[in-house]
Design a protein around this nucleic acid. Structure first.
Lengths: 254, 254
DNA sequence: TTCTATTTTTCACAATATGAAAATACCGAG
DNA sequence: CTCGGTATTTTCATATTGTGAAAAATAGAA
């Protein structure tokens, strides 16, 4: 059994990644039992890997013996955030936008075939949309995800569709590759994308892209609201906010 | 050659940690050549591990083929930071303290035998002390480090001295285990510690500890200034700021 | 072009991680 | 306090897996 997936990767590292991802899914800490179950790894193997990770500071152990993500990840992670200074720059702009329209504003970055929520400004209303920081969603069910796909061209979208099978989250999810391409192209031309209950029934989003000094897409900004409260007037506001963050990152139009 | 250090760790994970640390030492990106040289790993081995890490998103590759820390680290890291919400809570307090006394304020967390700088509010003066976020310093040459040592008791300080050899950074560095124990105990009793040019000539610090809801030390707050500008009047301000952050984290005195 | 400096792939080998099983630690219930 | 079930940790024989020398490919400089 050699390289079943054709990837030239080291087994332990792939397994470690699975363990860390599983661990990140728990709000605070998790026991060996759950982690080995979630990852499908033999408890003995999971234990050995986790012990090694603990030794290096990638995970920590609670008094109860459970595992949680470690300080070293925070340290290394803050280097990454410092590099793409998005979060820091975005925070203020996001809060202004939230105050202006009264709905939740999210900042997401792409990771593989998904977007990850990295920052947010939550609406202070009884009914609101709220994403957990660190949670993920496939590209094709989110407004910014569709724009990120559009950046890569039609072949890449086709490849994405092939790879993921465009799983449906609601009856409105775009499950047809053709429709996704059309929608993505339209969004790129307009400079914003909508999500009409494609990820969750009753939730509507407006999203726009954030670019760094080099013009590369580094994040996506979006407003998420109950669909009946969403207003077309917000579109220019979302675009302006995304552009404001881009400008702070050194992007001068384009 | 089995477990030369007696540790039951997985080799690849230890090597991966070395590579990531080496990578973190570079401001932006680094080439395979430097990374393998820095870590002492065979280029072939370093390449294979880095490729695997890249596959999992722990590192990314630049257009030039260089390596840099990846998004996944930011994502996992932000989970850690969200847990110990220190940085977010600290930011505002730190800026207020900085504005009050006009000198650089740092937030550090402990990692093994070192403190890591995770947040800061920089003095806006021509001459100022400025630490790079992510950089480190041994416990015994910093104000907060000495307080963190004091938390663990004398035996632990002795063990630390034994382990590290208390390397001298300046002629004022405490290189005698006895002196370090005395100093640490005094600092713990006072509730603050000083650093009198022990890390760098001309730099003086005042540090105090930040505790979470459980009373555990989660970080250290310190003011760093040119030694001749440092004032004893700042001591209560630093302590108050550290306590304010602790309070926000749920700590109610102790 | 040719030469040099890096990066990447290859491959035979043995060191290394694996996982079944046994041992230990941990709890709750009685 | 003891028993019984559960979770964690260690052990150990095994072959799978990662290793690193060397060769191949790639990129740059002259």
């Amino acid at each position: 059994m050699k390289n079943p997936k054709g990837t030239a990767s080291i087994q332990v590292i792939e397994r470690m990644a699975r363990l860390l991802d599983a661990l990140a899914a728990y709000p605070d800490s998790a026991s060996l039992k759950f982690l080995s179950a979630d990852t499908g790894l033999h408890p003995s193997t999971a234990h050995r890997i986790l012990a090694s990770l603990a030794e290096q500071g990638f995970v920590e152990r609670t008094e109860a013996g459970d595992y949680r993500l470690g300080r070293k990840l925070a340290r290394l992670g803050c280097r990454v955030n410092a590099r793409l200074d998005v979060r820091r720059e975005a925070q203020e702009v996001m809060e202004r936008l939230r105050d202006r329209i009264g709905e939740t504003v999210n900042l997401t970055v792409r990771e593989g075939d998904e977007v990850v929520y990295v920052e947010r400004a939550i609406a202070n209303r009884m009914m609101r949309v709220e994403q957990v920081i660190g949670s993920r969603a496939p590209l094709h069910v989110t407004a910014v995800g569709k724009m990120m796909l559009a950046e890569e061209g039609e072949e890449a979208i086709a490849a994405y569709a092939e790879r993921t099978g465009l799983p449906a989250f609601t009856e409105h999810t775009l499950t047809d590759p053709e429709a996704l391409v059309t929608e993505a192209r339209a969004a790129a031309e307009r400079g914003y994308a909508l999500d009409d209950e494609e990820a969750e029934l009753g939730v509507g989003c407006i999203g726009a892209l954030v670019r760094d000094a080099g013009g590369n897409v580094v994040a996506g900004l979006s407003v998420s609201a109950p669909i009946e409260r969403r207003r077309a007037e917000w579109i220019p506001l979302v675009r302006a906010a995304a552009e404001e963050i881009s400008r702070r990152l050194g992007w001068n139009g384009g």
